[in-house]
Amino acid sequence: MMRGSEDVEVFAIWEYDSYGDYERIEADVRKDQGHVHNVLKWYNDNGGREFIIYSHFLQVRNEKLENTVF
């Protein structure tokens, strides 16, 4: 269980030239078998994906931000 001062928020912003570039790069990462293997191994070494997600993550969001200043 996460408690008060142990909570950590991770916030990342990635910039792409276009939404199409984002989709292509995301697809390439998901097809990278070495990366997929490492992610799955990390989950398994740390109690399994379900355990990690439900015991450590309070919220996960993937939101598209758009520039409103031109």
Rank of each mutant, 00 (worst) to 15 (best):
K31E: 10
D7A: 15
A12W: 06
V10H: 11
Y43K: 02
V36G: 03
G20I: 12
K41T: 07
E63D: 12
I52H: 05
E6A: 13
V39S: 01
N44E: 11
G48D: 00
V60G: 06
F57S: 04
E23P: 03
E6S: 13
N62D: 14
E15A: 14
L58N: 06
V39K: 01
F11C: 13
Y16S: 05
Y43P: 01
R24V: 05
H56A: 06
E15F: 08
Q33C: 09
Y16W: 09
A27M: 02
F70W: 02
E9P: 02
K64S: 12
E50L: 06
A12M: 13
E9M: 12
E63S: 13
E6V: 11
W42V: 00
H35M: 03
V36N: 00
E50K: 08
I13F: 09
W14C: 10
L40M: 11
H56W: 09
M2S: 13
D7V: 15
R30D: 14
A27R: 05
N67E: 11
H56V: 03
W42N: 03
S55N: 08
Y43A: 05
V39W: 00
K31F: 05
M1W: 05
E23D: 06
Q59L: 14
I25Q: 00
N38S: 06
I53R: 04
G34C: 03
N38C: 01
D45F: 00
Q33E: 15
E15W: 08
F51R: 06
I13L: 14
D17I: 11
D28H: 04
F70C: 02
V8N: 12
I52N: 01
A27E: 04
R24W: 03
E26V: 03
Y43M: 04
I52K: 04
G20R: 13
G34N: 10
V60I: 15
V36R: 05
E63Q: 11
H56K: 08
M2K: 09
Y19R: 10
A12S: 14
V39C: 01
T68Y: 10
E23V: 07
D17P: 06
D7Y: 14
V8C: 14
G47V: 01
I53P: 00
Q33I: 10
F51C: 05
K64L: 15
F51L: 10
G34S: 07
V29S: 07
S5R: 13
T68H: 09
I13T: 12
I52L: 08
E66R: 09
R61Y: 14
L65H: 11
V39N: 01
T68D: 08
V39Q: 01
I13W: 07
M1A: 10
V69H: 03
H35G: 02
R61M: 15
